[in-house]
Design a protein around this nucleic acid. Structure first.
Lengths: 241, 241
DNA sequence: CGTCGGGTTGATAACTTTCAAATTTCGTGG
DNA sequence: CCACGAAATTTGAAAGTTATCAACCCGACG
């Protein structure tokens, strides 16, 4: 019971988890906390001695620019860690905000390290997940640097899709996606108006539909090809190295 | 002697290093290897059980796009680790190439972990450095997403400058920089032609000069202000937390 | 109803790329 | 030390992409 939490599900694709490990994982989900949409979980400059696991809902990490615009660094979906970096290392210069109403579980550094010592395989899995997160930031960077608006949008929505699939929340047919076009604009470094036009193009080209909180892949393979999306870096689960 | 290696110098700004720690650091610099400019150190997909420390010269990590263009993820300067991620975690989807002739020291995962166990403060320092690297990737992402060409270029050259200062290779007056305008274009997600125009603007505005392998800050403070550059995230050396 | 936040669309402006052609710099061999 | 060729830099003009501005529409909700 409880082992089908999004986190367990995600880590399970990296290493096969034992009963004991699942138990340790479920221990993480003490100290629940709920936030409403738009509420801040972490302000830049803050140095917390704990991280969070996102149990339900979507969050995002972002940085505000002087002119009032912002750049979203990444979205977090159920099963993702929030602020893992600022616990392990030094505080980062960004905010974390709830995109939808969310539920998080607070995990103290102590609990985390404790768990790592007791179950090294869990540590491996978490490090893999962290590594994947970092790879995604790099991929996002590539996206912003060298892809035009339509490829960028395609690639991003595919990546998000892969993550949702990993978390057991989506398929290659599509997934629920509560993002507004404004949020999409902020993560893709585009204007909301242009995002709107791009989404129309994708729809008209029969590639994907973004509507009413739902992303639908109309032609997954063609979209993957078009966006130059590398499926492997997300789904070749290297079961326990 | 030897403790004024770029790496020692850099880590020294994070924690004060003892003689013993400096000795351990110098041990890292066995197994030297030299590469000529343009040579690849790491291909994407490769999974090495060792990382490298850049002893001299500049390198870059980048990803090739289908259309032949590329996006440079980051440059590495003396004192930086190369491929640290792919040793700790899983192999990343990018290449590492020598920008100038370089000298690297190979560090096996074993040696690294050994050093960490013997000298935890060194581990702290290295993790801080890694954290700083990650923060820089995030800042680079912000740069690509939300700054126009001239702010972007300014910000990037300032950041590089901060790193050079940390490594003891530059000052707020300027630093040696062996990058061509093509390389600058590849890291900033712009065309080489446009980089050229941007550099001219910066020169004409009396902000900075990029010439013959030398970046000269003509007006450091005004440049920092203009680029919305956050000095603190690089130089507030939190001496041993 | 009336408002309000998203979404949609058109027109125009701003920014950046591309293409093409000098011009300069720099390393190398004579 | 000089000449030469390759590579890097520089500049102009035209084309392409994306942002901005200004409406308008629509459904949710009090």
């Amino acid at each position: 019971m409880g082992q089908d939490s999004p986190l367990a599900r995600k880590l399970g694709t990296y290493v096969v988890l034992s009963e004991e490990e699942l138990l340790v994982l479920s221990k993480f989900h003490q100290r629940r906390r709920s936030l409403t949409a738009g509420q801040d979980l972490l302000h830049q400059g803050e140095t917390k001695q704990s991280a969070y696991i996102l149990a339900s809902g979507w969050a995002c990490s972002y940085k505000l620019m002087r002119d009032g615009t912002r750049q979203i660094i990444d979205f977090q979906i159920p099963g993702d860690f929030l602020g893992l970096r600022s616990i392990l290392f030094r505080t980062a210069d960004h905010n974390i905000e709830a995109v939808t109403p969310i539920e998080v579980s607070e995990v103290s550094m102590h609990d985390l390290i404790d768990a790592f010592v007791k179950t090294p395989r869990l540590a491996t899995a978490v490090l893999w997940a962290a590594s994947r997160d970092e790879a995604m930031v790099v991929e996002h960077l590539i996206n912003l640097g060298r892809r035009d608006a339509i490829e960028r949008t395609s690639h991003f929505l595919l990546e998000l899709g892969s993550r949702m699939i990993l978390a057991g929340l989506g398929t290659t047919k599509g997934y629920p996606c509560p993002l507004s076009q404004y949020l999409l604009a902020d993560v893709l470094g585009l204007s909301a108006v242009h995002i709107n036009r791009v989404l129309r193009q994708l729809r008209e080209n029969g590639l994907l539909t973004f509507r009413r909180g739902l992303v639908t892949f109309e032609d997954f393979d063609r979209l993957v090809e078009f966006a130059e999306f590398d499926k492997s870096y997300l789904d070749d689960g290297p079961l326990l190295r």
